[in-house]
Design a protein around this nucleic acid. Sequence first.
DNA 1: CATGAATGAGTTTTCATTCAT
DNA 2: TATGAATGAAAACTCATTCAT
Lengths: 201, 201, 201, 201
Amino acid sequence: MNEISLKPLKTPTQERSWATYHAILEATTHILIEQGYKTLTTNHVADRAGVSIASLYQYFPNKESLVATLHTNHAKQTRNTINEILKKAKNSSTATMIDLFVDAMVKAHSDNPELHRVFQEEIPRLLKTAILKEGNDQFLETIALITQNTDLPSISAKDLAWTIRIMTHSIIHQGIIDRKDDLLSGKINRELKMMLHKLLL
Amino acid sequence: MNEISLKPLKTPTQERSWATYHAILEATTHILIEQGYKTLTTNHVADRAGVSIASLYQYFPNKESLVATLHTNHAKQTRNTINEILKKAKNSSTATMIDLFVDAMVKAHSDNPELHRVFQEEIPRLLKTAILKEGNDQFLETIALITQNTDLPSISAKDLAWTIRIMTHSIIHQGIIDRKDDLLSGKINRELKMMLHKLLL
Amino acid sequence: MNEISLKPLKTPTQERSWATYHAILEATTHILIEQGYKTLTTNHVADRAGVSIASLYQYFPNKESLVATLHTNHAKQTRNTINEILKKAKNSSTATMIDLFVDAMVKAHSDNPELHRVFQEEIPRLLKTAILKEGNDQFLETIALITQNTDLPSISAKDLAWTIRIMTHSIIHQGIIDRKDDLLSGKINRELKMMLHKLLL
Amino acid sequence: MNEISLKPLKTPTQERSWATYHAILEATTHILIEQGYKTLTTNHVADRAGVSIASLYQYFPNKESLVATLHTNHAKQTRNTINEILKKAKNSSTATMIDLFVDAMVKAHSDNPELHRVFQEEIPRLLKTAILKEGNDQFLETIALITQNTDLPSISAKDLAWTIRIMTHSIIHQGIIDRKDDLLSGKINRELKMMLHKLLL
DNA sequence: CATGAATGAGTTTTCATTCAT
DNA sequence: TATGAATGAAAACTCATTCAT
């Protein structure tokens, strides 16, 4: 039903192109953060990027691909941040792994929380799934490392990992909205660690 | 900035108009569930309801009010379901209260899970806030009953209640999407209870 | 091209009807004065009159007839006021006749100046012509009484009367808009008399 | 209450767009003259101009701005015509100045009398005020040059200038409607001069 | 007489996308 | 490569008027 390609048309090779390409993505980011998805129009983006609308369509096949590109980049970066931190945790105790995991999650979401909020709240679901599915499995494996020693009755390891992911994600995301100060000050960070310790140890 | 009234224009008095009013809301529901918010247009709704577009605007001042009405009704019903169940819990043990709370939450979201999913995932945030704020405080007080005997270090009663709410909500909501069968079979229900027991007792 | 009848459908005979009929016209007047012709809709009028839209259409065949009726009434009343005053002037000197004429004109327009302004400025031309033509000739004859002794070179009596009418009308009408205080205080009245004396005597 | 911008969105730079821009304004003019403001719809204009409705909205932010642009242009042109003629009058006698003034006024309004008539009679007042206010003061100063030597009792110079303006304007405007031939033949022109001589000398 | 419900036929406006240069 | 002009297709919304009761 929705066979529109979300991939950028071409990755720019020349220098001038790169500038244009990034100006477009940056304009998209700014509009998303400042005015939300509702007001994101391709003409608006091109205007703000200082390029013509036709140039925009040289790099992006359609409006959705703009947001998808941004979202993919964002997800990749988030994943990298988390993986990097967790690499160090491979041989640590579960308690340490929990702490590192929470730190990684909060750090990853603290980067550009406004943009995160937009993706979480405003971007239509269909745009997200493809990208999210990809990193999901790997992510759940990472969490499984943490929960491998936990023995909770009547919940499989897989479901537990799922639950941890949802819990952590939702508390951080909603924290961005409801308790931004607590998130930045590290309070939510501490609360999360404490709760996971109680739950998993 | 967003001074648009979301309330229905007039509540129908005659029988004939009652039918129209509900046909419109039902059409809205169907389109939301089957095709999502993106394709929800007033003309589409009127068509599906079998009434003229002008009739739609006799009862609803704008497109948003359609969704807002649906959302308000849904939220009210959810709240009623929860309050009714919790009324019985007033003098129970914390353990029982947790179980009843989870039952209430899951039951409330099992009613029309597809519609719930749409509200959760597709409806732009601005449409929601107004309605949700209302029932929020009362809801947090209810949760406070449960957590009153819990002694978790470094988390205030208020923040704990907030966390419980977010956790429970998000697991149920995301469960509708990722683990629908587990939700309907009661599996998620049991997992939630178990986790809250471990966390709060 | 525009064969719509502007006449009221039926003049009400019963008492209750009269009340409805007048409520409708009064509502029309209020809306015209307070919000202008742009916002005058039949539904709005019916609402404000406290009657159903269908009742409105029992007395008036269409929207235009509402305004036309009001305009006709207003014009008749204006004409009556003027004629009454001028009746006394039949055998006076020209100077006295000028003064009485100006007094009559100003008085006629002072009655409901806001409504006058709306008719002058906002009502589409097509609605006016029919009514105005009628009273026009009689009015010009009256003016001719004043100018009969004037001897201005190169202007016929008829054209002079036309000029006097336009002049007087426009100064009063624009006075309502630009110099309302001067109109009500009698200043414009005095100026007009003075000018006509200089012109015609 | 009326914060709608009336200014054109962009002034065309390329040749092609210049043509479009003018086609739109010309279509507007034609419709106003032939069918009046009531039937002036943006779709109608776009159709007649032979461009798409979307193109219209590239140059004009809303329907009102179409008329406002036309009116502004017209007013500017009128003002230019008058100022040019009056420049020559600076050091003339009052009698000559009156004659030149009347000539200028009539000439300015003879240009496109049909359009003038539409502006005068059909365009809702709110659209006009902004534009007219601008040139008004300068215009009254010009008239003051003429009336400076006049000694009429009980009327200030300022009010006299106002009166002259209203009188002249209204006679010409109404002349377009009631006595078009007399206007074009110069008859009204002569009458006006004669009257102003009698009044001001 | 009176009514509230219902609507046909428009109206203004938007926007992702394509085209000519 | 880059652009500004142009547009098709549809969106939200309005209102004078008719109809069933």
